[in-house]
Write a protein that binds this DNA or RNA. Structure first.
Lengths: 148, 148
DNA sequence: TATTGTTATACTCTATAACTATA
DNA sequence: TATAGTTATAGAGTATAACAATA
């Protein structure tokens, strides 16, 4: 059986997963970046600036992103008690329901994908991918688990 | 050592690879979709319609995409000899040099990432990812190697 | 003075709908 | 009539620069 190179295989896998995510997000009228925004807010209440750091965007881009999500009732802005210049962004109940549903569907997709493998290979994949991410995070000096 | 779930690990790996690709593309002032356009043209001379199918875009989106790439001298349009309504899109020498350089850099990034693993695990990863993609392609009824 | 967030501006990317020119 | 491609239009997403409010 033909085998892809390591680079090609990982690249194709990455595109496949992104397509799965995009499709599920699209079913809820969410873009990938809106999905990431809601995902980040599941366990945080960040300022606009912090969101920019978490998502890798300029604060002006975050401003517009949050504005559009707020218009749809998915997030809310509230003034920061600690700093009068800052704004805290939070998920609304509706936003939380939406992201939880989309995340569950995506997890189902990936689980379904992995069912093509025998259990032993599935476990091997999980273990090796974990090690790879941990080693990469260590090399970059980034903490893996608090990040997103 | 803490281990990520299969779904989380694959999702994070996918985002990591996309960030690597985006960074390298950005160094050449390319977006991911422009990079994919040039990549597709490396071994094809498609019409606008075929590009739409390959990239998953509407023909009007492809029209603009090609227009911007042409303005930068990366691709060229030529009339189809077979059908007077069609246009064939080809890579210019400059476009080919650009995509080859970016692809080589990205491959270097992924190779560097994989060097965090001992050779035995690297080979295991390659083999399992290959099988996963082959099984998924078979399940979807798609040929893996001609596609992009 | 420095920082936080918003706004104005400009560009890429995308889809839908209307158009033209071929077939 | 049907298809290939372009264009007009509208909107999301992004960054830079300028700004107001607060620190």
């Amino acid at each position: 059986m033909e085998e892809l190179s390591a680079v090609d295989g990982l690249a194709q896998l990455s595109f496949l997963l992104q397509r799965m995510l995009e499709r599920r997000a699209g079913e809820h009228d969410l873009s990938i970046i809106q999905t990431r925004l809601l995902g980040v807010l599941r366990d945080r209440r960040p300022t606009i600036n912090e969101l920019g750091r978490l998502l890798g965007l300029d604060k002006s881009s975050v401003s517009g992103l949050v504005e559009r999500a707020e218009r749809r009732g998915l997030v809310a802005r509230s003034p920061s008690p600690a700093d009068g210049r800052s704004v805290l962004v939070t998920l609304t109940d509706s936003g939380r329901a939406l992201i939880n549903g989309a995340a569950a569907q995506f997890e189902g997709d990936v689980t379904g994908l992995l069912e093509h493998l025998p259990a032993s290979e599935r476990h091997a994949l999980t273990r090796v991918v974990s090690r790879l991410l941990v080693a990469h995070a260590a090399a970059e000096g980034v903490e893996l688990f608090p990040g997103r």
